[in-house]
Design a protein around this nucleic acid. Structure first.
Lengths: 98, 98
DNA sequence: AGGGAATATACGCTTATGCGCATAAACGCA
DNA sequence: TGCGTTTATGCGCATAAGCGTATATTCCCT
């Protein structure tokens, strides 16, 4: 099993990490919202979410024409802890103009 | 700045994570030791260490014909915390035979 | 049934990553 | 200086990752 590498690789992409940051509020977010807020195209965002889902970090739920993503429930504590640590790193998108 | 992604990507490779695990004892380890203990070729290990060094996770020191690597000193707490969390994930190489 | 919205996916392309092999570079020692 | 040891690196290759475009798919609503 190489779950550790999968998870780390999933987090090692700026847009995916940004998506995780949004999803980590515990609420559901549709792809359309994520792509808008992160400035990503539809297919790009969809695929990134697929990676996060495959890594076990998020789950999705079909709701009419939308697919709602949210933080995976019952996430192993090690994993949750890792994600928290990743989110604690300085966020490039939060940079203050000089 | 995309340091976060760099660090996560650096950790997202099994051999590199295993190297970090060894180096996280705070001691110095030469490439020859790492390659032996991790079963990697020389060039492979050297390059992996280069990636870790570039990510700022380790430092190297020339000692005669050896290059001693060790955990980077004064690592930002966020980063140290992240690495600790990554090392806390179940380790594939520590698997117990069934 | 038909149309529009939201999402996933197949395809092709470009770039990045990881690797082995061979070679260079740095060093100690005789 | 020449040799052995250790480490880094140039080169080429194979594979993976990421992306855009276009197309399917799923669902609601009329």
């Amino acid at each position: 099993m190489k779950a550790a590498s999968n998870i780390l690789a999933a987090l090692a992409e700026p847009t995916r990490l940004a998506a995780i940051r949004l999803l980590w509020d515990g609420q559901e977010h549709c792809v359309c919202e994520l792509m808008q807020r992160l400035g990503a195209t539809q297919s790009r965002m969809s695929r990134h979410m697929g990676v996060l889902k495959l890594a076990g970090l998020v789950t999705d739920r079909r709701d009419a024409q939308w697919v709602r993503y949210r933080r995976a429930p019952h996430l192993p504590h090690h994993v949750a802890h890792l994600v928290d640590a990743a989110l604690a790193l300085p966020d490039p998108s939060n940079r203050i103009a000089a």
